[in-house]
Write a protein that binds this DNA or RNA. Structure first.
Lengths: 348, 348
DNA sequence: TTGAAAGCGGTACCAT
DNA sequence: ATGGTACCGCTTTCAA
């Protein structure tokens, strides 16, 4: 059923039917009723491509699937982000177009998007420090918004980010308060802006406390389970091992837990662990105090916020860049809900 | 730059240019060269919607984002599946269209897809036992393929699935071989077909060994960390607690590990854990033998296989249903690679 | 081998 | 308030 046959069935012109269905004011209420009813009855839905061709809009937002380069694995929270984003895009009639890039020529995809008119805007994930996608997109004039920021990029662009620096500063401060002095940082690839910022927060907290970061306790790599496991194992073997861990990925966190579990059993070692992204938990004498950032839901939330911002940018081409810094949640309590911070101190 | 202006710039008709670019044989090699070169030079790319309107194909595969109903969280391997699928779709010029359904009227989305001609086919995720989406899609005639199967559906349909029954039967057998008799099953929602099948495999293995499953050791719920944690805690408190755990989600596995870590510290308890999806690991006296199914990469692989199958279905409307059962990987070794199975026996 | 022109299914301008 | 029609950018039949 297309517009033509619907119009014929109603004995009206395509123009009128189209107007009635799209809420134009010049249609009489009587005909509008009649048309809408018939549309439902016949199950008429306008063809997406025809509509897009006529209006010049794709009603699609593009996104390149972000895989960590080597292992080609996708960040497990990607699904949550996408769920949040597409939920709010849907409210504006938009869907999400996912593409995968063979090599590292992501720029080619954006040029294609633009040239083919395949999408009305794009979402950029996991920007690097000095990410060059931003300049490209600004240049080709494809509306976009970055999930995260890119240190070193001076030209204006829209972004929605979580305050990673603050989150890690606070988490480190919390551990320091508890008496920890040897705090390990299991970080992601620091060419990625968010990892870069997390380290910054960690170092800030240490320096504010008059301590300097021990290079031996900081490591950076792709966030695999293996990475978390190996690094933790190695660090626990130091003569002055860390008493707490700060980590930024639920995947690596599994590895850390595995290593700790092993260490406790083998060495009877009593260690604390603090984990960012999904849950931060502090373990002391077998009593666990979960501190969590509930990142899966906050990533989802970021997706929602970002989608709304992008819709604004698209509806108004002259809209100034939107920059939105989301407060990092850092709640101490059980994973069923926040609770007051318990200051469990490290025994001297 | 569109076809018209490209044709004008070349002093050729749109027809010829179109033909040259689409590899029609009747174009002279000389003009084809000339056209292709000019297309590159001008950065010409055919408009997606115009092309789609003319050809009647959307070059898009639809997919509804699968969220577990209550918590609205997305399975963390979703990204890996999508990466695999869209990689192979891209080889055929297809992209993926993601939609989120507000309520539970997923059927409405598929009708829309069909009526609007928004996609050429769809991928169905996480089918329930007796999933009714299958009948609907068969009825409305939208090509589709299911990632997983649906026990109880008799009409033919295409699917790509992993042998979950076998995987869990084998894992259970392995634990039995090692001397375990009290094996816990931390399962997903058993209305979902894959969870249903996993329990089947678990029970099969027990019965083959002349044992019957203890209802106390089987639980099923949404795969949250909390779920894994709480159930493990509870089961460890039994007077005859499990000595091994079989789990089907990396998220719940974190909870299980957390509970075990705690238990070891508090109770000095020595437990084994076996985890499906991402890693199966066996822990004994502090010596860990990882047994893993590498599910993140195998889910990715499933996405690739499924995409290829769907491309076949779409290119040939009369193609009979494609059913492909992927062997579940069950490898014993380190997480860097497979190694021979070590039969670490439980002390009697 | 090349070109003219009729769709594909809508929207929107200009009349009436 | 309603209708006629050009047009969006491409493919494809038919004619030359």
């Amino acid at each position: 059923m297309n517009l033509k046959s619907l119009a014929e069935a109603l004995g009206l012109s395509q123009t009128t039917v189209s107007r009635a269905l799209n809420g134009y004011p010049e249609v009489s209420e009587a005909t509008r009723k009649r048309v809408e009813e018939a549309a439902v009855r016949f199950g008429y839905r306008p063809n997406s491509r025809a509509k897009g061709l006529a209006t010049g809009r794709a009603m699609l937002i593009g996104q390149v699937i972000p895989t960590s380069t080597q292992h080609e694995m996708v960040n497990p929270v990607f699904g949550d982000f996408v769920a949040g984003a597409s939920q709010n895009l849907a409210q504006h009639g938009y869907d999400m177009l996912l593409t995968r890039v063979p090599g590292d020529d992501e720029g080619k995809v954006y040029r294609e998007f633009r040239a083919r008119g395949a999408v009305d805007g794009v979402i950029i994930q996991a920007p690097d420090v000095k990410d060059d996608r931003i300049a490209l997109l600004n240049r080709i004039g494809l509306p976009f918004i970055v999930h995260g920021r890119s240190t070193g990029v001076t030209e204006p662009y829209s972004w929605v980010d979580v305050n990673n620096t603050q989150a890690f500063r606070r988490a480190t401060e919390f551990l320091l308060q508890l008496g920890h002095r040897r705090i390990a940082l299991i970080n992601g690839l620091e060419r990625m802006d968010f990892a870069f910022r997390r380290r910054k927060g960690y170092i800030q907290a240490l320096e504010n406390a008059g301590l300097s970061a021990d290079p031996q306790l900081m490591c950076t790599d792709e966030m695999t389970e293996q990475f978390g496991y190996m690094k933790t194992r190695r660090m626990l073997a130091f003569e002055d091992p860390p008493t707490a861990f700060l980590c930024a990925s639920m995947i690596s966190a599994v590895g850390i837990r595995r290593a700790l579990q092993e260490a406790q059993l083998v060495m009877g070692r009593d260690v604390s662990v603090i984990i960012h992204d999904d849950d931060l938990s502090y373990l002391r004498n077998g009593e666990e105090i979960p501190i969590f950032t509930a990142t899966r839901s906050s990533v989802r939330h970021a997706g929602e916020v970002l989608a709304d911002a992008l819709m604004q940018l698209i509806s108004d081409p002259d809209h100034p860049p939107i920059n939105q810094l989301l407060e990092a949640q850092l709640v101490v309590g059980s994973s069923t809900g926040p609770a007051p911070l318990k200051a469990a101190r490290l025994p001297s």
